[in-house]
Design a protein around this nucleic acid. Sequence first.
DNA 1: CGGCATCCTTCATGATACTG
DNA 2: CAGTATCATGAAGGATGCCG
Lengths: 136, 136
Amino acid sequence: MSEAAGGAGEQTVEELVADVFRRACASREALEHVTGKWSLLALSALAESPHRFGELRRRIEGVSERMLAQSLQTLERDGWVHREVRSAIPPHVEYRLTEDGAALVPHLLGLISFVEARMPAVQAARASADEVRRPR
Amino acid sequence: MSEAAGGAGEQTVEELVADVFRRACASREALEHVTGKWSLLALSALAESPHRFGELRRRIEGVSERMLAQSLQTLERDGWVHREVRSAIPPHVEYRLTEDGAALVPHLLGLISFVEARMPAVQAARASADEVRRPR
DNA sequence: CGGCATCCTTCATGATACTG
DNA sequence: CAGTATCATGAAGGATGCCG
């Protein structure tokens, strides 16, 4: 990511297609796809093992059928997830990470673990921020 | 994160407040805050150096004044970003990462770098997926 | 079972205007 | 400059029904 990530100052061809700070950059869209509310959780669930649609739906509390299907389609289209239909009636569809997906997921899991570990600090920060705004 | 990340099977007290798969878990909300479209970019920009409001606005192409202000408020409330007012007229406000924020950002930068690096693969995946769906 | 199509509600976001 | 307030709208999301 040009400066922010690499620190390298030189302008490369890469930057034209891979600078998230740029409005119309494809990488920004791709990033949003994987960090989406439900996509993030779906990828995390698939990190454990392949899952069927219904399994994912039950695993990810609060996701609707519609949003899960939509998220999985986007992830499949971007090449992070593979969708495999095993039979037609009744349908048996299994989702699994692609190689790219398997390489991506550790980054997401690391982020999730970090945030979960810092939750006490986050809640403390919120409490003190709210206290200032609403001084009883 | 209970199973998905740690792999540990034991149920700890942590899980009650830190399982992103659970609907009402605070960690899911906190995660959404840092992975939000504009929050992610704001944190990345602040990883380089402290920025003023207007600087951030120009740096993050396409963000509206309203969304940036809102994102920064959320990040400040969760304790990732510190907001410092230096003068009143004209206003001079500087945003910088807190210690927690500085610890968080490498995870985000790693994710961004990874996605940017894989853009060719992503675009190839999209092209082939679209080809199948629309066979001319 | 695993979707897709449809309808409808809620929310997030952007544009604009105003203030300290 | 750095916001806040208001309004309008398009997108996100949920509920339902149908089909392979």
